[in-house]
Design a protein around this nucleic acid. Structure first.
Length: 518
RNA sequence: GCCCCCAUCGUCUAGGGGACUAGGACGCCACCCUUUCAAGGUGGAAACCGGGGUUCGAAUCCCCGUGGGGGCACCA
């Protein structure tokens, strides 16, 4: 039983995708579960796609989620360097060995014309232009003299893996059990590019061996390239890691793997419901987007872990520690899981509601600052947290609920009038509230409530209809947090001034009387 | 097109031959609570892809269909 060492090996070509983060979570869980080591390796063998910022973004994402690597480009370790572009000598040496043993051969063919992503993206229809990867193995059996001659001429070449032509290859996957491929379907993949850089197949095998990786936990999309890895490992005398192909994270509609483009329309659709003062549900697939939107890291961890794994039959909210306690590789599912923005939102709201007010206050602080508000005292911040806690699903929604604290309000006459009271009644209520609150002392939610409730009694109206106009007068809109606590958070003078202004507005609006009947 | 993988409510899932009148969660619907909005409470609708087997007995095992996903680059 070799010690558990697992790795997350993303290529730094863009901002961290939550699908990748999910795979990282599984790796981390297994490392922690087994007392093993969680490693981050940078797969940057494609120089053309390298993006420096992606490195930092990935690091930040792991830190944010609380699954920091034990070894990696920023944390070091005894198996470095952890960046593939700094390990080229190792791949070259491996390639030489494969060449020498006949397990690989030089190929002088030019790059495919129809190349890569060059395929016309608009031709999306059927039976496409692209071929089906059939390299004809033209160089597989070149005479030694020919190879020597080409090399002497300085002809560029790649190195291809010599795959078996018959028989089959099998692999014991930790989740899927035995996997099998038949030789007639193989290709001879390039393992060394003409620029001297290895392709994924070679690099991953060499590095996993050098870093003594025990379990290669990777997404299902890699399953198909496993036979290449089997052959490379065998030829190099490597004891292969246990392969663990985890299910992919799919788009909400199940069509394809989770992607930005596809998700857009769901995000937009989800935000159509604008009953909340703050819109949300923008298309998101990047970790930093979720962070910016105000999803809690503990929620992301919890939600991500649930995609393709389940904690138990009837519990699905858990801490990392609890997840570690129950995690087993065999329990990871075989089929893909769709990304469900609604469930994520629910979970985020649920966790927020469970937060202590002071904790929530600190988490909201930066979002308020972004909206232009920096509470002068922590009591106000805590007050805000208390008001929004049961109303927000993401932290970024918080400012929208309490903007009236630092912005001028401009209620409309229409909004100020409560149908049951009419213009006169509404105006009278507002005026009475202003009078009643002007000299109130102390200025607390409790004292405000006492005043306003008795006001309703003395005016002979129900509390509900009376509070409506007052809320609109002070917060500017019909939807706001509970009245008394809201008023208490504002300066007493500001509240009274807003009530007076609203009263004046209604007093000027005789014409509105006609609205009453309706 | 070829290869590989997968298949329980709309979604995430529990289930690994009898404990299943198939459980939980999100979402949805209704009602309650209520000063708006929420939150909360109660109740409800909602699934074993189809067809063959194996077995006394199948959501659970096998086969075939069908459906879905992934792969087939000098990208990873």
């Amino acid at each position: 039983m070799r010690p558990v060492r697992v790795r997350m090996a993303p290529s730094p070509t863009g901002f961290t995708h939550v699908g990748n983060l999910r795979t990282a979570v599984f790796n981390w869980l297994w490392a922690r579960k087994s007392g093993g080591v969680f490693i981050w390796r940078v797969e940057d063998t494609d120089r053309s796609r390298f993006i420096e910022a992606a490195l930092h973004d990935f690091r930040d994402s792991l830190v944010w989620l609380g699954i920091e690597p034990d070894e990696g480009p920023f944390s070091g370790g005894d198996f470095g360097p952890y960046v593939q572009s700094e390990r080229l000598d190792k791949y070259r040496e491996a390639a030489e060995r494969l060449l020498a043993s006949g397990d690989a051969y030089r190929c002088f063919c030019p790059p495919r014309e129809d190349g890569a992503g060059a395929a016309d993206p608009t031709s999306g229809g059927e039976g496409g232009s692209t071929g089906h990867g059939g390299y004809d193995r033209r160089c597989r059996d070149l005479a030694p003299e020919v190879v020597t001659e080409r090399l002497a001429q300085g002809a560029p070449f790649t190195i291809r893996l010599r795959m078996p032509l018959e028989g089959s290859l099998t692999l014991q996957d930790a989740i899927h059990g035995q996997l099998e491929w038949h030789a007639e379907n193989f290709n001879d993949p390039i393992i060394m590019k003409s620029d001297g850089f290895p392709t994924y197949h070679l690099a991953v095998c060499v590095d996993d061996a050098a870093m003594e990786i025990s379990h290669a936990i990777r997404a299902d999309e890699w399953m198909g390239s496993s036979p290449y890895h089997i052959v490379i490992n065998r030829a190099l005398g490597i004891e292969p890691p246990t392969y663990v192909h985890v299910p992919m994270v799919l788009n909400p509609d199940g069509r394809g793997k989770l992607s930005k483009r596809k998700t857009v329309k769901y995000g937009v659709a989800a935000s159509d419901d604008s009953s909340s003062p703050v819109g949300h549900g923008v298309a998101m697939v990047q970790a930093r987007e979720f962070r910016a939107a105000g999803y809690l890291p503990e929620v992301m961890f919890n939600y991500l872990a649930l995609l393709g794994w389940s904690y138990s039959g009837d519990e699905e909210l858990f801490t990392p520690e609890q997840a570690i306690a129950r995690f087993q590789l065999e329990d990871i599912h075989k089929s893909g899981a769709r990304w469900d923005p609604e469930k994520l939102d629910w979970m985020n709201g649920h966790y927020i509601r469970a937060l202590a007010v002071d904790d929530l206050a600190e988490r909201i602080r930066p979002f308020l600052a972004d909206a232009g508000f920096t509470p002068e005292d922590d009591a106000v911040l805590a007050g805000i947290a208390g008001l929004v806690r049961e109303r927000i699903t993401t932290l970024s929604e918080a400012p929208g609920w309490v903007e009236w604290l630092w912005r001028e309000v401009e209620p409309t006459a229409t909004d100020l009038v409560q149908p049951k009271l009419g213009v006169q009644g509404s105006a009278a209520g507002i005026a009475a509230a202003a009078d009643g609150l002007a000299a109130l002392e102390p200025w607390t939610a409790e004292s405000i409530e006492t005043v306003l409730r008795s006001l309703a009694d003395s005016l002979g109206v129900k509390a509900g209809p009376l509070f409506g106009p007052i809320r609109v007068a002070v917060t500017g809109g019909g939807v706001a947090p509970p009245l008394f606590d809201s008023l208490a958070l504002l300066d007493q003078a500001v509240v009274v001034a807003r009530l007076r202004a609203a009263h004046a507005l209604l007093a000027d609006t005789e014409g509105l009387e006609t609205v009453d009947g309706a």
